[in-house]
Design a protein around this nucleic acid. Structure first.
Lengths: 341, 341
DNA sequence: AGGGCCTGAGAAAGCGGTTTCATATCCACA
DNA sequence: TGTGGATATGAAACCGCTTTCTCAGGCCCT
């Protein structure tokens, strides 16, 4: 069985210089292309780098340059399938720009966000705040510190910070139109995390749908399948013939419970999800939901940040479109709403 | 509209020292608790830190201490729902130990892994290699460099590197037992990524199931739903009455295609997934699959790494159990296998 | 009361890079 | 042929923090 080699001292730029017969300064110049270096010397340096397997120490580099080569990403919940696609896109863009990415999650606890952000800032050049839950004031204060940051899925009016989001309100309005057209008049909404801007946007649009003749009941719920399962009982205590959920997770949880309760979806009750989390790809009994280009969201967000860090800020709020996917979980209400079969 | 404040110089430890009327050394001692400091001075330091909003520069700290306070995680594919749960657990453990976490993905390309690892090592104290695809030799070479690293979902015999994995082989054997008991004799396997150790383990167990009287056909496929969709057509060209898939994603993709082909699952064909990715929580038409405690996997992996970094290596390979979840996608084969209804 | 010891705080030397600054070299031109 | 200027390279300062080293002061003991 192989033994781990005892920690041999790391190869430093001085070692490379010595091996190539040049000063460390020259090695640095060759590696960074910051100044013209004699081709012969450069060749020797390259060779030395290769044979020694030299890799610049990121900390030393960061300290000297005043840049870390790292961007930080804050998300509320890594387990929420909404984020991985975004992270993937961000990661790709960052790498293409020579940046590493550091990720932290707040576990849906708005109170820890400032601490996490502060911690990220200790080692990142720029921040991507995904669906930040912290109050507006804290966000403003943060932005005032002058660190490059981009807001994802949160628009703060009057804040000159690059922002990009999905048009949640528009997507919700599509849902309302769909339900109204089917003949629904009373809808319930299983509300997401309290501090979620996306949730607020959905509620705003749902309330505005009074214009379509939709009466709304908001049921506090949460963002997970467990939350949906727990909150489902309350739906039947409302006059709702359709229920809109914060996201597909909640919808799936609610559906589980509704089945247990013997509720026929969509005959007895229409259920609408959000986010198109593709929890079911079998194509049958699929949830009517709202989809959005999450990879684009991630890609554009990261690009905004990269631009910001190189001094080309773009503080126009970007809004990505949301599409309604009508599937099998929505149908017209029973003519005389009967809540039990 | 608020203006971003121009980059004010960062607060350094010297500023804090000046404000508190002590030397930077003392500030450092107070903050790190490395030596006893007069209570009065310590109080002044704490106060100065608070009023100035001082945060130590991670790069400088890393350089001075020779540690970065960061662990790196390499995954093949961030979009695969298998990993977020692991990342979540890892992230929690790391944070509890005062570490940040840096994540990179290889996009299922084994060739870029060494480069990514090298890049991670420039700024991480330890590495968590999740399902690394690189060849054994490269892994050995890497381990020989002596950097703290833990292997997740890959066991390399004879390599003294802490490893933790799911008992894929055992899980697969459970599947085989289940299928054999149902009366199946011919099974097809939609094979995962070429370089995947987990895939190799599954195949190993499937082949060993000849002992149960199972005849195997391996169909090259991949790890995504799209791969499953594309490969599904080939299933019918085999005598298989049951198909085992690399994971639930592949299974879902295959199911989609099978439905299009008019194949009745499970009456015409049994389908088994893997990983319990919970793609469908509605409880109906659910996939028979194999589940494993992914949060534990992540937690234990991170713990192994933390131990390793503090000098308590544990190189016994850890194997987490896999459970068979029998749902609705498996059934006895038709007595006279008829592939069309 | 004086000397050795212990203790706590400051000065200074790194950590490993980058970048400024100074200098030696070389070329061009008068 | 001598001098001015451009240029490639090395020396050294610096980034911000930790840690060793040094030393001043206080204590105990004889």
């Amino acid at each position: 069985m192989r033994r781990l080699r005892a920690n041999t001292r790391r190869v430093t730029i001085t070692d490379v210089g010595a091996a190539a017969g040049v000063s460390p300064a020259t090695v640095s110049r060759v590696l960074n292309g910051t100044a013209k270096v004699d081709a012969v010397l450069a060749g020797r340096v390259q060779a030395a780098v290769r044979t020694l397997g030299y890799r610049p120490n990121a900390a030393a580099q960061g300290l000297a340059k005043g840049r870390w080569g790292t961007i930080g990403v804050l998300v509320p919940d890594l387990a929420n399938p909404y984020f991985p696609e975004i992270l993937k896109a961000v990661s790709a863009v960052a790498r293409a720009n020579g940046h590493r990415v550091m990720i932290m999650e707040s576990e849906e606890n708005p109170a820890v966000e400032p601490e996490l952000v502060a911690d990220l800032l200790r080692s990142c050049d720029g921040l991507l705040l995904c669906s930040p839950r912290m109050p507006r004031d804290q966000l403003v204060e943060l932005a005032d510190r002058g660190h490059p940051m981009v807001l994802v899925n949160r628009i703060v009016p009057g804040l000159a910070v690059p922002s990009i989001s999905v048009d949640f309100s528009g997507g919700t309005t599509l849902i309302c139109g769909h339900l109204a057209q089917l003949g629904h008049r009373d809808v319930a909404y299983l509300s997401g995390p309290e501090a979620s801007w996306a949730n607020a946007e959905r509620i705003r649009a749902l309330e505005a749908a009074a214009a379509f003749g939709l009466r709304l009941t908001v049921i506090p719920c949460g963002g997970t399948a467990a939350d949906g399962y727990a909150a489902a009982d309350q739906i039947r205590r409302t006059p709702a013939t359709a229920v809109v959920t914060y996201n597909d997770l909640v919808a799936q949880g609610a559906l589980s419970r509704l089945r247990e309760l013997g509720v026929d979806v969509p005959a007895d009750l229409s259920v609408v999800g959000f986010d198109n989390l593709s929890l079911d790809w079998t194509g049958q009994a699929t949830l009517t939901t709202v989809s959005m280009p999450r990879d684009q969201l991630g890609r554009q967000a990261a690009t905004l940040l990269e631009h910001l860090m190189t001094g080309t800020p773009d503080t126009n709020p970007h809004l990505l479109p949301a599409d309604l996917l009508v599937h099998q979980s929505t149908a017209p209400p029973r003519t005389h709403p009967t809540h039990s079969p």
